[in-house]
């Protein structure tokens, strides 16, 4: 289990990236949802030993992440938000090299592991092609392959699906879903489906704070009966936004559908079956965080 207590971080330019974060993350897939600039990546980097915290603590079982970085790195798999590759290097080269860096010293064991990772991520056919020619999806699969090297007890995956097309994202989800349930996997994302598809536990982050945490089913239940829906004219949207707490609007068959948050049934609205998206946006609205909808 990963226990985070009172973690804070202010950057030199005054931006408060993490504000007293306290969070217990059990084994299994954990979804960290939040808009850009919420502090997700700061938290991920801190947990991945790449960044110092001003105060607070973080423990993976008995490993003190902030103090004993070496120990954590031995059991960490990290897929950063945006990464590249050494020029002209192939997945085979890189995975082998990373495996060595991760202490997989036995040569045949290493070879078997790299092969099976290549198969598993469906990169075996391109194992001898340069990574810098890969498409986004292939690169992300390579990223997860390297994160799986060794016996990670903590896997951190930062915004892995941003920019992937639906089929690639689906494939990526399948990959993630296979990761064992006995280890902590943190998936940071701003895409709600990532969490609803994969995560038994989740939290929503904004302005460097944890705004909400729990199991998706449970947070959805909490909001049941508070979300209402209406088809509106496009030019009337501004009026509704003044009158109601509009949490999101989207287009359906050319018409604008809005969801509003309300404890009572507003006139002219019909009840909406609550999903995680409603939870996410209503949480943000409650905390006065504007997101381009």
């Amino acid at each position: 289990m990963l226990a985070i207590k009172g973690l804070s971080k202010t950057y030199k330019n005054g931006v408060r990236a993490l504000n007293n974060i306290t969070l217990d993350i059990p084994t299994g897939m954990f979804g960290l949802l939040g808009p850009n600039g919420a502090g997700k990546s700061s938290l991920m980097r801190t947990l991945a030993t790449l960044q110092e915290a001003d105060s607070g603590s973080a423990f993976l079982d008995d490993i003190n992440i902030l103090q004993d970085k070496d120990s954590l790195r031995k059991v960490l798999g990290y897929l950063p938000q945006d990464f590249g590759s050494y020029p002209k290097m192939t997945p085979l080269d890189m995975l082998d090299h990373f495996a060595i860096l991760k202490g997989v010293s036995n040569r045949s064991e290493r070879r078997d592991m790299v092969d099976s990772l290549l198969h598993k991520t469906n990169l075996y056919d391109v194992r001898k092609k340069a990574i810098d020619t890969f498409s986004g999806g292939m690169k992300q699969r390579f990223g997860i392959a390297q994160a799986l090297i060794g016996n990670p007890r903590l896997i951190i995956v930062d915004e892995p699906t941003a920019g992937l097309d639906p089929s690639e994202r689906n494939r990526f989800h399948n990959l993630l879903a296979e990761i064992g349930e006995n280890i902590v996997v943190i998936l940071s994302t701003h895409i709600v489906e990532d969490v609803s598809d994969l995560c038994p536990n989740m939290a929503i982050m904004g302005k460097g704070e944890i705004l909400l945490s729990g199991r998706p089913r449970q947070v959805i239940d909490n909001l049941r009966g508070h979300i209402w829906r209406k088809r509106v004219k496009r030019d009337a949207l501004a009026d509704y936004q003044q009158q109601y707490q509009v949490i999101l609007s989207h287009l359906t068959e050319g018409e604008t559908v809005i969801h509003v948050l309300s404890a009572t049934h507003p006139e002219g609205f019909e009840p909406q079956e609550v999903d995680l998206e409603d939870v996410y946006f209503s949480t943000l609205i409650k905390h006065d965080i504007k997101v381009a909808v």
Partner: peptide, 22 residues
């Protein structure tokens, strides 16, 4: 070449996740 339908995910779960010596 990669947009071919995704190969069935290896059913026999990966030797990779069997423990390796570190």
């Amino acid at each position: 070449s990669d947009t071919a339908p995704s190969a069935p995910v290896a059913a026999a779960l990966p030797a990779a996740l069997t423990r390796v010596q570190q």
